[in-house]
């Protein structure tokens, strides 16, 4: 019989790092969210007070928190379906028997995924510049008045959503492509013999067969989109008129600009609860339809 501790030797580095730098901070973060840890406590721990749920109640009474929540929901509710539709559309095109140069197109469509968010967000800021941006120039030649994309509170979030779709659609596209290729071709052959239209084939074969993939992609994309931060940080700094302040942007400013680390921890846990609830709802809806 082999020595029983051997497997644990292999696991020890991973478990120590996860324990010390993940599990402990998660617990610590919850405790922190129950204190008034601020810049005074940062200087001297004697200034720290236990305040119970006061941070959470303060957040619920704070208009900016609700606005940040609304902006994040806007980004998720509009951005996730748009991203998934773009990914699915691109995957269907690439999967078509008629498509040529598939390898090249797949690489080209995937390229934005591996780029650095900050760098490409900077590019978009110039492309969507009101005066010199190419987007407004192209629209102008079509007779459309210039739009202040990132400077107008109504347009800033849609611009960020367009950016996120552009940056991310390639990732799910590759997953959908694998899902499409796993659908047995004889299903399509049979439906062709029965005289089904392309739309009917999509509706009754492709869509249901992709069900589990769709659910997984939906859950992963949603939890990623709830964590909106770098885009508003680089493109709008939360503006204009705080119209792109997301929950994480608020957490960052509360925590690391104003050093209210207790309050920021409460923001983080609120986001966690929200993400958890949204994921659970999505999974329940999927199970009801027999998709997961």
């Amino acid at each position: 019989m082999r020595r029983r501790w051997v497997p644990w030797v292999f696991l020890t580095p991973a478990l120590i790092v996860l324990g010390v730098f993940f599990a402990l901070p998660v617990i610590g973060g919850f405790i922190l969210s129950l204190t008034d840890f601020d810049v005074y406590a940062l200087a001297d721990l004697h200034n720290l007070r236990f305040v119970g749920l006061e941070n959470y109640l303060a957040l619920l009474r704070r208009p900016l928190f609700w606005r940040a929540l609304a902006h994040t929901m806007y980004f998720v509710v509009v951005g996730v379906p748009l991203s998934i539709m773009a990914s699915l559309g691109a995957a269907l095109l690439l999967n078509s028997k008629l498509a040529r140069f598939k390898g090249f197109f797949r690489t080209a469509l995937f390229a934005p995924v591996v780029t650095t968010v900050v760098a490409v967000a900077v590019i978009w800021r110039y492309l969507f510049n009101t005066r010199y941006g190419l987007v407004n120039y192209a629209l102008h030649s079509l007779g459309v008045q210039p739009v202040d994309w990132l400077g107008d509170p109504h347009w800033a979030m849609p611009t960020i959503i367009a950016f996120a779709v552009w940056k991310n659609f390639g990732y799910n596209m590759v997953i959908f492509l694998a899902g499409l290729q796993a659908i047995p071709t004889d299903l399509y052959e049979a439906s062709r013999i029965d005289g089904a239209s392309p739309w009917q084939r999509f509706r009754h074969i492709t869509w249901p067969m992709l069900g589990p993939t769709l659910v997984m992609v939906g859950v992963l994309t949603m939890s990623g989109y709830f964590q909106l931060f770098a885009e508003p940080y680089v493109m709008t700094e939360g503006g204009p008129l705080q119209s792109t302040v997301s929950v994480l942007y608020l957490m960052y400013e509360d925590g690391f600009k104003w050093w209210n680390l207790g309050l920021a921890s409460a923001v983080a846990f609120m986001l966690f609860v929200l993400m958890f609830a949204a994921t659970a709802l999505l999974m329940r809806a999927a199970r009801k339809r027999g998709l997961a």
Binding site: L24, G28, F226, L261, A264, A268, L271, F272
Partner: peptide, 17 residues
């Protein structure tokens, strides 16, 4: 299971640590 916890909840305590 730990994957459901977003890393951001650890950022404030991790910074202090």
């Amino acid at each position: 299971g730990a994957l459901v916890i977003p890393a951001q909840v650890t950022m404030m305590p991790l910074f202090l640590m």
